[in-house]
Amino acid sequence: MEVDKGKGEAEETRKVAEADRDTVTLKSSDGKLFEVSKEAAARLSTVLAGMIAGGSIDDNGTDLKQIGSEALENVVDYCNKHANSIPSAALISSSISFNTAPFKEPEEWERKFVDRLSHDALFDLVEAANFLGMERLLDVTCHKISEMMKGKSPDQIREVFNIKNDYTKEELEEIRQELAWAFYDD
């Protein structure tokens, strides 16, 4: 065991020295290449951090077969923007307070970042953030989707997301009896 561990560490040192670059190259499922700051990638994604530490980053483009180019472009864009943004005082001080959710509110630039996305791009980005272990990006994207559900009746939510009402007549009647208020629409 001792020997193995020593060897692993040596290997890692060598690889890090070899790939002594500031960026890593990521390859989308459809073969497009994207460069992202190594520091930001390691800081924002547990999966990429693990790959960088484990030396499994490919200089010619690390394959991310589960992520399409549009979503990967957004991931990279987010990482780069995050690297450039100075955390606001609000973000640092927003510790879990009494009556608020323990999720940090998105910052202004994060809001703008997700606001410009189409629904599809947003859902893809949620999946990509989840796959890459990007907690903050997952938080921001899920928050955006949750905002689209706020203050709406089930009918209105169906319209927003284009979801089919697949309840049977009997089920719908039971729900409307018991939770009539939920369908209140002003």
Partner: peptide, 20 residues
Amino acid sequence: EVFLRLPSLATLVRAALTCR
């Protein structure tokens, strides 16, 4: 994960009733 970020139980109930 999305539902967890809804502001209150009232919003969750309405969202959860959207479909089966």
